[in-house]
Write a protein that binds this DNA or RNA. Sequence first.
DNA 1: GCGGGTAGGTGCCGCAAGCATATACTCATT
DNA 2: AATGAGTATATGCTTGCGGCACCTACCCGC
Lengths: 123, 123
Amino acid sequence: MPTEPALPRNFLRPCVLLLLRESPAHGYDLVERLRAFGFSGEDPGRLYRTLRTLEGEGLVRSAWEPSAHGPDRRIYAVTGSGMEALHQVVPALRETARVLDGFVSRYAEFVDIESPSSVSSSR
Amino acid sequence: MPTEPALPRNFLRPCVLLLLRESPAHGYDLVERLRAFGFSGEDPGRLYRTLRTLEGEGLVRSAWEPSAHGPDRRIYAVTGSGMEALHQVVPALRETARVLDGFVSRYAEFVDIESPSSVSSSR
DNA sequence: GCGGGTAGGTGCCGCAAGCATATACTCATT
DNA sequence: AATGAGTATATGCTTGCGGCACCTACCCGC
């Protein structure tokens, strides 16, 4: 794993919504699947808090499910307004990606000038 | 201007360093040039506070300069350790861009399935 | 009965971000 | 000579996210 990314504020929320849209899951499972989006897996408490907040806002719903081995699980699924909320935030995240690409290439521009060796491609 | 981007925490700092590296400037000027990185220009106070913080950390230095028209300006320039700090945070921002691209394309994947009309190119 | 993996949760605090507000200089207008 | 607009720099206050620590409880193997 490279450097830890500097994620946007509240990025956890859309990530949870997207993952739940792909398939319902319980928190402990989401902890693992969230690694793909740059979340280290430490601080599961943060995720559980976010899940309860999302449920309070009606963006996800949950139901307890007994587990064969281990304690019961609270299975979460995204709701209709949850999907709406996801659709609404995506443009901002797209915009963020655009800005960051701009920043990086603008940074790379003068780095290439200063050290013409070990050139990083301009993507 | 599209939607306001959801910028990472502390993103203002590297932006200021990059802009000052491109050319020294005073705060009021930076406010304008920061628009390229998604900063709306409201809340200039935030920028000025950030500048003073950066100066306190030795990442930038400043000098007063009289203005032909209007009040005096505090001209900022990036220092050596400021550049080091910039180099150190860029990998994380690169990583963030990567993650966001991944998120967006993963989102687009099921959006294309649900509404096969109005297809967005897969970049 | 002890440790380790699974699963879900609360408490607390620092600090960035958001918003309002203050000061002061210059110039053009009334 | 006062008023307002544009330029320029700053402080005060509040909120809420994020980071860290900590707790409970279940199941299984040794």
